[in-house]
Design a protein around this nucleic acid. Structure first.
Lengths: 226, 226
DNA sequence: GTATCACAACTCCTCAGACAAGCGGAGCAC
DNA sequence: GTGCTCCGCTTGTCTGAGGAGTTGTGATAC
């Protein structure tokens, strides 16, 4: 038997849930004007302040928009599905497959387009990663992620950079679990591979950069499975 | 001279703005317990209910978490940056580059892993696209996007599917502009290419599927630039 | 000394009532 | 038709009150 966390769930959240259901369920399409606060309060069986707070919460989610004197209007029918949230809930193998897809191509582009500033940033990030290896796990993980981020940034595509940033929390979570489980004694070996990657990008070798990233992620994935 | 829309900005939003500034500015790091409602109301110079509504709004954004009896706590320091929003604001060339990156690999995976159900869905989507060509622009665009979505879905990676869905609004926007500008007389020619893509996936030919997607997106991009 | 329990202080939660401020339509004068 | 005023409805804001939950403290029993 599985236990679900018991939550008293304040009236405000219950009210918000009901309103959300009306909106996402299509009963109130985009543009609809909601019944007045007093009406809603009566039909939900709660006070007006409670209804107001529920409306505020949904407004914060981007679903509703109250306009003084006019009423409350439906702004969107779906809560913005946060891709980052999706990543956190997804299977790790799926996340890593997409990450591989993005990072390998990013490394290739980085090797083709890197500027001098990119190379300087990459070398600085590599240096920080090396030095962080002697510090705490959290520092090392941050430095490792920062290096990968720098590679993606060197591809010079803001959309790609923003996309990779969506992965960062999931990566940090995964790496933390990995390090906690297996230790990171052999993680320093990764230094060679990362240094080679930075060199490949710096000297403009797309094939080698892509291959190195591919190998490194595959290695991490294998360690995870082991 | 440019006119900016005048917004009276209710007290609730002003209060929420101030609280948000404290959080994103780092004055209240993640995990911090906020001062009590009465204290906040006094220091902001507003009533308690106003503060409560502002807190609800920020809770809706995922920044705060009120816990009855305990207090209000900072849950995250940054408003979730919605990747979809980012896409809408980004340069089209950058968006298409990342789209190309995702969709080509997705087509390859789809050809490797497609199930019978996937193939059936692909053929149905292709059929709908062909028939929609005789209907309105909006119908045709939706059907075109649905076919591309079906290809990505056939790759069998939920993360990839969710990622591609983030692109859908931007794609629809771009296609609508393209069709409005250049008409879609030659768009029906795309039928051959799309049919070939579906066939390549169905018969399990990853290289050909990837190449076809690559060509098709490149062609669209060229038309856009022309 | 340690563990347990009762309690008090503090917090958020909910409600009701009152008034202010803004919107939108009805009706009217021109 | 145009512009005006007025009125009803809506959200915005404040206050006061009591309920319910959490947390730390201090007394008590062992």
């Amino acid at each position: 038997m599985t236990l679900r966390s018991i939550q008293p769930s304040p009236l405000v959240e219950q009210a918000a849930e009901q309103l959300r259901a009306q909106i996402t369920g299509g009963a109130w399409p985009v543009g609809t004007k909601l019944p007045g606060e007093t009406t809603l309060a009566a039909s939900l069986g709660v006070g007006r302040s409670t209804v107001r707070e529920a409306i505020r919460a949904l407004a914060g989610e981007g679903l509703l928009q109250p306009r003084q004197g006019a009423g409350v209007f439906v702004l969107a029918a779906e809560p913005r599905v946060d891709f980052g949230d999706h990543l956190r809930k997804a299977a790790i193998a799926d996340v890593y497959e997409v990450r591989m897809m993005i990072e390998t191509r990013a490394a290739r582009l980085a090797a083709e387009r890197r500027t001098e500033a990119d190379v300087a940033a990459l070398e600085a990030a590599l240096d920080r990663r090396t030095r962080a290896a002697r510090r705490s796990d959290a520092h090392f993980i941050d430095a490792d992620i920062a290096l990968h981020t720098a590679v993606v940034a060197a591809a010079g595509n803001p959309v790609l950079t923003a996309l990779f940033e969506q992965f960062v929390p999931a990566l940090r979570e995964g790496l933390t679990a990995l390090v906690a489980a297996s230790g990171r004694a052999d993680e320093n070996l990764g230094h060679t591979a990362h240094a080679a990657l930075v060199a490949a990008v710096a000297e403009g070798n797309p094939e080698r950069a892509e291959a190195l990233v591919s190998e490194e992620i595959a290695a991490t994935t294998l360690r995870r499975l082991a």
